[in-house]
Each structure stands twice: as structure tokens, then as C-alpha cells.
Amino acid sequence: MSVYSLGYSMRQVFVSLRRNLGLALITSGMIAISLIAVGGFLLVALNLEQVFRNIETTMEISVFLNDEADVEEIRQNLDDHSEVLSYIFVPRDQGLTEFGEAMGNIQILTDLTGENNPLPDVFRVRARRVEAVSALASEIQAYSGVEMADYGRETLNRLIMATEWVRTFILGTSVILAIGAIFLIVTIIRMSVMARHEEISIMKYLGASNWFVRFPFVLGGMIIGWIGTIVAVSLIGVGYFRIAESLQTEALAFFLQPVLEPSKIIPIFVNMMLLGTLVGGLGSFISVRKFLKV
């Protein structure tokens, strides 16, 4: 393609966008809607991951000690264990007080203090990784002086299953949405190319190369995709940070706090930009191919 052809093609892109403004806007809008669906879904996925992570990291192993337990020795073992993130020691008296507070009435426990306290001393242990909880509990169970190490096996297993299921669901749905978006966009761009098929056919009869014909469409498609992406990213960005702000101020629960780290959010937006631009360009490339056969 000569320099003059390139300049002509560039001008044609803008002339064509202006002439087919309605169709270009519809295509941009469809790209924006598709990307809002995909991007929104990815943000929901990211936050769901974080919610599960939060729940997982708060899972504790309650280590009940017997009367002969050497608390210092167990404390030393926990300190030395690589999978132990943190622990707190709850002496039996403190345990009774906490139980009373949880019941809402400390008075009824008055007779259970001192020698009558039925509760054992307890270590509440947190693991570094949720996957390590089960093995860690088994190891602690084997420590001398440990009566029982309990971690809510059922809850943990359900949580792990739910996390896996949600991950698979989100991945599958994102792929389906992305494929659907590409088909939709290719169809709309094909309509826009069909509206100009007469012009393409004339260009071919006049001796235009395939790239000369294709280039303005591909560049135009990329611009349309890019505009759609900017709209999608802006709407998602504003919407997401509004919701995030309200969640932060209302503080419904600590595990509902949204993901706000730029290192996690920015890649989603950058990928949306690339996807939108690529889909626009690729859609045009595919759509125009059929009309080049003269």
C-alpha cells in the first residue's frame, strides 16, 4: 500500500464513520453492552473470590485442652508450625465469660466459676491456607494434652466445593458471553459492510488491492470497538466505585468489602480495552473478507 493509499484510507475511515454514523453508534453500543456484561461479570467474579477468601481465612481450629495439658509446650509447637498463621489462647475462665456474653446473661453462670467451670482451656488457631486446615487439625490433635481439635469440617468442605463451582460457573459464563459478543458484533459489522458492498465491488473493479479495501474497515472497526470499550469501561468504572463506596460506608459485613486494589482492577479494564478494539478490528476483517471475491 502506497503512502497516498494509506493517507486516503485514513481519511476514508472518518468519512465512512460520519456517513454511517447511525450504524457505527449501534455497533459501538452493542460492543459496550457486551463488554459491560463480560467486564461486570469479571468484577463480580473477582469480588466473589475475595468474599470466599475472607470467609476461608477466618476459619479457625478450636483446640480443646485436657487438664494435664502443658500450655507452654503446645504454644511452642504452634509457634514452630509453618502452616499456622496466628493463634490466641483462651483460658477456661475467659472462655466462660465469653460464653456468658454470647448468651447475653453472665449472671446465670455465677455458679460455674472456679472449680465448677466445665469449659477447658482452648487455643483458637488460624491456618495460612484453607486447604491446610484439615491436615493441621489432625496434627494438632496428636499433640500431648489436646483433647480435641475441631474446625467445622462440613462447613469447610462445602465452602471449598462452592468456591470451585462458582469459579467454573464464572469462567464458563464469561467464555459464553465473550463468544456471544463476538458473534453479535461480527453480525452488526457485516451489516455495515453489506451497506457498502457496492462500493467495495467498485473498488475491486477499479483495481484496488484487498488491503486497500480492507484497511479502512478494519481501522474503522477498531475505532468503533474502542469507542464502545471506553463507554463500557466508564460505565462499569463509575458503577463499580459507586457500589464499592456505599458498601464501604455501610460496612454490612467485613467479608462484603469490595476489591479496590488497582493491581486487580486495572488488568480487567485493560483487557476490556484490548478485547473491544480487537473484536471491532477482527469483526471487520472477517466481515469484509466475503466481499473481496471479485
Binding site: S2, S201, M203, Y205, L206, G207, F212
Partner: peptide, 22 residues
Amino acid sequence: RLLKQKTVYENVAFALEVIGKS
């Protein structure tokens, strides 16, 4: 097979533009 949105001049010029003439 003229392009309706182009003038007479532009239609004729089009034949040279598509083959990269200055």
C-alpha cells in the same frame, strides 16, 4: 456503478485513489 454519495469529480478521482496515485 457510480458512488451516489460522491460527486462526479470524486467518482473519477476514486479510480486513481484506489491505485495509490498522488
